[in-house]
Design a protein around this nucleic acid. Structure first.
Lengths: 222, 222, 222, 222
DNA sequence: TCTTAAACGAGACGGTACGTCGGGTCTTGTG
DNA sequence: CACAAGACCCGACGTACCGTCTCGTTTAAGA
């Protein structure tokens, strides 16, 4: 497809040199993405309309269609553009603690403006598989990779069981807050913590009483 | 408004006697619900349109608007009408086994036509809180109540820890499959089982090695 | 076709009684036609746009499309609505005089606002045969019928040759002014007169010198 | 603008020598004209689009705009390029016969591909006076000049009246077929002949019964 | 049996957004 | 310079649904 030619954001266009014709305006691209992000944030989904984005961004409707033939793609790209670098968290010696920290960060993200956008992306994705793919690829996977690394560190240090089913575990930890988001239920840190405790309590190398999980110290010795 | 007067399905119309004028036609109601269900099932969301429902059911658009002012309400009611009595499962002596059985049943439901509708309901719910409420109330809660009962039996029998955070646990068990549904990922029984094992392994009264969880016999003796 | 059902203007709807549903609003119809006529008159063709008509008339675009799926039909109907009763002329004893009188009236019409609309209709008709048909049927034919009657009177009174090729004659008399209209050339009465003289001079029962045609008295006696 | 500088086709570029920069490509010009002619011929007006011409000719849209700022100009030039030398007809001793011959030739032209283009030109001309001017200048005038010459020969030879109103006569002879063209009505030779007979019967020096016009021999002697 | 009041079918209507087409202008090249 | 390529803005197109609004016609239950 010529999609690779046109959608520049992905990857490094290894053909650095010429593309014939007038080059794509980056100012245009950004103002569209910003407008999309804002509309999604403010009016959430109902107000998120190509027409609206065009109006607010001052970009012609046709231009928007040229680059984002699907609304979902636009939402997703606007989302990534605006929130990509937000998730960073400190690493401690305890995998459980790290895990919880990341979960809390993610929860915070969902509580904020990004939450509305994720809902929008998922909704759009119901009609368009590519949007879902972009969502999984661009948002879920990175988070999962990071989480996987944390758990691996836990295993390596002996804090966590070595026979963890990571995939299942990650689902159990991350899905609930996304579903709550979609259902409009609050996602506060206390709830996240208790979920983490409940799920992680069976994953420690040294089984403990649930109360102890909460303080989850790196296991013995050290 | 006198919605209570008009929306009959909810609750027992305690005024059993008179309503002046022509009574509501049940045939009409049912053919609308059936049409809605079918459209949602076939075309999923994109095809689910008041106009379409009217056309297929042969009911006037106005009539539909009279009884279901929100599309989500229509979807939800059509869903319940068609799938309400589907979830039944045998009870064994093992809470873990029962839990897994119910999860598998639920997964089967989501794999089927009902899955598409649930997506539809959630999507509509993004715009309309009442739809979400009806979804939680009419679909999620019953399932949760049942699951709670199972877990309680497990606690009573000594199979499960008495200090379970049931709410968190249920989220961990049920959310992942709903999210997978929304993301278009497959929900097979094996995946459901491994999720259940992972989550439940920390909930047993007698901590076990993960492998053992799978066979999870009732702890006998005690 | 159900066109007969929908397009009311033609003939007397002999089914006087019921049509189900909300009846068509005549106010709407008229304000659309008026707007169309005005736009065509003012901006002539370039400004004549469904969008423009909708804006000026205050009628929804969809409503316009419902009743006039072709722009030409709208133009034509607006034209007839506004100018139908305009062509009336006195009858004298001389067929030649009557003919010239009608030609002058027609020329006056073309010089006025109606002229622009006729151009519009013909232009639209290039894309849509129905528009052309409506134009011929609704505008040209009536004029031709009237002219035929005049000529017939001339023949009956002995003023004109009995072997006239009426069809050809009418073309020769009427086409030039329409073509001039389309070419933006002026259509003044003197020009019309000289055309009539030139064409009619060969049609008299008593051939005359061209100068005499102008005064063309009924040949009396015989 | 320096249109005079740019539009070369008209007149002899009296600066015979060099113009700075790359010279205009004649191949380009011709392939544009050809494409325009073809499109106009095939799809007639609806398909005749700058974009389409660019696509078919393989010439960049900008280049087309540079040389033919109006669509009508393009149509007209393409038309002349393709059909200019087509109208030639033999001269006989009878002006009436010559006239009819030329009319038939013209009718044939209109029946063919050129007819569609003339319609296109006239349509475009409704928006742009220059196109109309070019049409009159480039197509109508030459034909009229030729016809005028024929009639003059007729007068000189005594076949036709000396007091003819040539301008009116030409209108009466030529307009009808052009109008028929625009109205989509057929223009067959028989029709053309009967029109000519009707119009010309009053123009002969020796008035005749209509039947005689048809054989219209040069009057004198015999 | 005859009101009477609501349910119901039909469809016009004003809207909003859609996705597309074409028209022009501009901004980059390259020849 | 001419030309190719193509991004961009713009206006209009015709369509799909939406939700509201008039109508006329059932259809029971209460007078």
């Amino acid at each position: 497809m010529d999609k690779a030619t046109r959608t520049r954001p992905t990857g490094a266009a290894r053909s650095p040199a010429k593309a014939p014709g007038r080059p794509r305006s980056d100012a245009t691209r950004q103002s569209v993405l910003r407008a999309a992000f804002e509309l999604l944030t403010e009016g959430g989904l109902a107000r998120f309309t190509i027409e609206g984005v065009a109006a607010r961004s001052g970009v012609a409707r046709t231009t928007i269609y040229r680059w984002w033939p699907k609304k979902g793609a636009l939402a997703m790209e606007g989302f990534l553009e605006a929130t990509a670098p937000e998730i960073r968290f400190p690493k401690t010696t305890s995998a459980v603690a790290d895990m919880k920290a990341q979960l809390r960060l993610c929860a915070k993200l969902l509580r904020g403006r990004a939450g509305r956008i994720i809902c929008g992306v998922i909704v759009e994705g119901q009609t368009d598989p590519e949007t879902i793919a972009a969502f999984i690829e661009g948002y879920l996977q990175p988070r999962r990779r990071e989480a996987r690394a944390i758990l691996q560190r836990g295993i390596d240090s002996g804090e966590m069981r070595p026979d963890l089913d990571m995939s299942a575990l990650l689902s159990a930890l991350y899905s609930p807050m996304h579903l709550r988001l979609l259902l409009g239920e609050p996602i506060d840190d206390a709830w996240v913590d208790s979920l983490a405790d409940t799920v992680l309590q069976g994953c420690l190398a040294t089984p403990t009483a649930p109360a102890q999980v909460r303080t989850a110290a790196p296991p013995r010795s050290a």
